[in-house]
């Protein structure tokens, strides 16, 4: 019993760090634009596909479809840069033109972009699953009956490093300070001389790069990818952002880990016949959050002083 628990915690940390990485993109974009970027899950998918094609193009994978750590790192960098550019393009051509209209317009635009990427992906990449290269040194460690896969360790270590890097950018750099100013009060940020369009584009680039990193990390672990992998993962990551308090960066990370652990716990403890309900856990949590703590765990409304 305890072993199941520990095992599922470990699995949950790996899964949760993926949700956290993606949730950060949702929460940052919401922070600066008050927009739920429903296309964000699809940017994660594109990241995985960029990695897949980069592996072929660069000849990184061996004939049997295996790659080294260095190769995986190159794929991740490539995917992050490509997705960052895609995020900037989406913001520039889909969201910026409708920014002055009511928020519902942007929301519907986001759904449109999402459909475009999913269906465009099926046209470009084909609807059949593709198989991502796997790490040739992928091993597992066994402690008693608890098994830790090396890929899980890599997922957690890389994700946490990226989160620390992001936190450093947001808290310690001038760009980060500008991001926080934009998310707090757009007009006041403009009055400081901040080029807010640039900051918003930069925010999309950061969030999209993190989503791409998540796409590569997941694919290294579960190599079957298709143009719709971003749908469910994206929605769960969105729930993670809402659970943590959308707009709050620490909240997104916390929410990601909580959703990941809740899901693996459900997978570990639900009877076999109900096992497929693990995907519903995130949405059950969403309903509870909306009922009892709509601002999320760390979300707060700053008091207005007169």
């Amino acid at each position: 019993m305890l072993q199941t628990f520990i095992q599922q915690i470990i699995n949950g940390l790996a899964l949760g760090s993926i949700y956290a990485l993606i949730a950060l993109g949702y929460t940052m974009v919401y922070g600066v634009l008050r927009l739920i970027n429903f296309a964000h899950g699809d940017v994660y998918m594109i990241g995985a596909f960029v990695g897949y094609y980069a592996a072929q193009k660069f000849g990184i994978a061996s004939a049997s479809g295996q790659i080294s750590f260095g190769g995986a790192l190159i794929l991740m960098m490539t995917a992050m840069m490509a997705s960052a550019s895609l995020g900037v393009v989406i913001e520039r051509f889909a969201y910026r033109p409708v920014r002055k209209y009511p928020r519902l317009t942007s929301l519907i635009t986001a759904i449109g972009v999402s459909l475009l990427l999913e269906n465009g992906g099926q046209v470009l990449f084909g609807a059949d699953p593709k198989f991502f290269p796997i790490l040739n040194s992928a091993v597992t460690y066994t402690f008693g009956s608890v098994t830790v896969r090396l890929t899980d360790i890599i997922i957690v270590v890389v994700s946490v490093s990226l989160m620390v890097l992001l936190q450093t950018i947001v808290l310690k750099t001038k760009l980060g300070k500008a991001m926080r100013a934009v998310s707090y009060n757009l007009d006041a940020a403009k009055l400081m001389g901040i080029n807010t369009d640039f900051i918003i584009a930069f925010t999309f680039a950061l969030g999209s790069a993190l989503a791409a990193a998540a796409g590569i990390l997941v694919s290294l672990s579960f190599p079957k990818i298709d143009p719709l992998i971003g749908v469910l993962t994206g929605l769960k990551a969105f729930v993670a952002a809402v659970l943590g308090g959308i707009g709050n960066i620490t909240g997104a990370v916390l929410g990601g880990f909580l959703i990941g652990i809740a899901e693996t716990m459900a997978a570990g403890y639900l009877p076999q016949s109900l096992n497929s309900y693990k995907d519903a856990v995130a949405f059950a949590i969403l309903i509870l959050v909306l009922l009892f703590k709509p601002a999320g765990l760390m979300g707060s409304v700053a008091p207005e002083k007169v």
Binding site: K177, A178, R180, A181, Y184, N185, D187, A188, A189, L191, M192, I194, A302, P303, K305
Partner: peptide, 15 residues
Amino acid sequence: GIFANLTVLENLELG
């Protein structure tokens, strides 16, 4: 329009 979530110094630096 002050940035209530930032410190006074950070507000001034943004200026």
